[in-house]
Design a protein around this nucleic acid. Structure first.
Lengths: 232, 232
DNA sequence: TAGATTGTTAATCGATTAACAATC
DNA sequence: TAGATTGTTAATCGATTAACAATC
């Protein structure tokens, strides 16, 4: 194909990550609005107020997923949700394997709602023989030895890493060698992968650092105000 | 030394969030370098290569936590780690409660490494009487009724929400009423809290959306290239 | 019509990256 | 000294916010 003028190719236009990260929030919010309050339209103004965001930002975000609204009434929630599901891959879910069936792995296995976002966890793997053939949330825990074979047979593209940090790189290498193209990493270990393989880091410490810092700043401010108070 | 001229008040200078989010990654990386490779210095150049970041960005980040390096040799890892621990609150940890002792709650209770980042999980609470007085990772699971009393008695400031999404707001309200100032929310529910209370959202769907999107873009690109290939 | 809301174009803000002098 | 690396100042880039005309 490769048509001429239109500066970036289709495959080069990529949604900004901040926008992408907000879509699931909108989705969750709107679904609730629809189910609990039986609303069928919502304006960027009300959404912004409820979610503590800027209405202009919301309109820009919604533009990215191809949604349009009506002046005076806002956006049709039904249509908006459909757009989002489409965008997030609800209608084109990817299969995934989890490696590591500890508490975290089991929590992920049981997490409902991944399907909404296009992820279908098929099974888990664990090196502990005691866990082999266990069922968690209706999904099988298989022995590690079967990993490569199963990845190939089912053409799995996504691997979820919920193993101890010191095993992360080894397991990741095995996944990649077997054909996995995207790794969702729940360990704090910074993985090295070949070109073309995607790694998404889910680092709890990162979030915690943000939370602790905000709290610290707030406490500092409170203390200062306290002082000023004393002071006068 | 606290010299004069510096326009904004101490409490107004706040580290940029992107920088803050990278600190734990540096920390984890450097600790490994120190322990596994017995290195005692590292340059922004090598760190950048290993972590796929820009060296200038790393230098700027390190400046924020007050670290300095030496031309030619780089940064002293020992000192760097100390700075980071100090910055992340390792020496000034906050106590926290978890509410919800399901798989996720138990995974969090057992997560080692929170201490490194200034968080000390004291106990968990669960409404399921079967779980009452259970021990997880050496920490007690207490019945929900005791929540308010314990928060007040121990002056807990941080609450971790690992309950089902439909209970999130109710439990959050109870936490806040009892005096909790920061809520780490692991449910997908968007919480409403009074002014002055901090909420940190740990939304798995958000990360997943990013991962799925990157994979989709990569597959699209691969497909396109495949076509071009065919084509010529 | 009047008024709220969309959607677009322009301005602002902040983070990343570049350029380069200072330094060990 | 020569050369790699720091740290600072300036340029760039991208996201957020503002302004406002179009629209139902």
């Amino acid at each position: 194909m490769t048509e001429n003028r239109k500066p970036p190719t289709a495959s080069e236009i990529v949604i900004p990550e901040p926008t992408l990260r907000r879509i699931p929030m909108y989705y969750q919010y709107l679904k609730r609005k629809q189910q609990d309050e039986r609303l069928d339209a919502s304006s960027s103004t009300t959404m912004a107020a409820d979610l503590s965001l800027n209405p202009i930002q919301i309109r820009k975000d919604l533009e990215w997923i191809g949604a349009t609204g009506k002046p005076r009434t806002g956006y049709d929630i039904e249509i908006l949700l459909a757009h989002m599901e489409d965008f997030l891959g609800y209608n084109n879910a990817h299969d995934a394997f989890i490696v590591g069936a500890g508490h975290l792995g089991q929590a992920l296995l049981g997490y409902e709602g991944f399907e909404d976002y296009g992820l279908n966890i098929v099974a888990a793997f664990d090196s502990d023989p005691a866990k082999a053939d266990m069922l968690v949330a209706g999904k099988k825990v298989l022995p590690m030895e079967k990993l490569e074979d199963m990845v190939k047979r089912l053409h799995i593209l996504i691997g979820i890493l919920a193993v101890p940090s010191y095993e992360a790189q080894t397991v990741c290498d095995r996944m990649v060698a077997a054909g996995i193209k995207a790794v969702w990493n729940f360990t704090p270990y910074h993985l090295t992968v070949p070109d073309g393989v995607i790694v998404q880091h889910e680092n709890m410490a990162t979030s915690l650092a943000v939370l602790a810092n905000k709290l610290e700043v707030a406490l500092r401010k409170a203390r200062e105000q306290g002082n000023h108070h004393d002071h006068k």
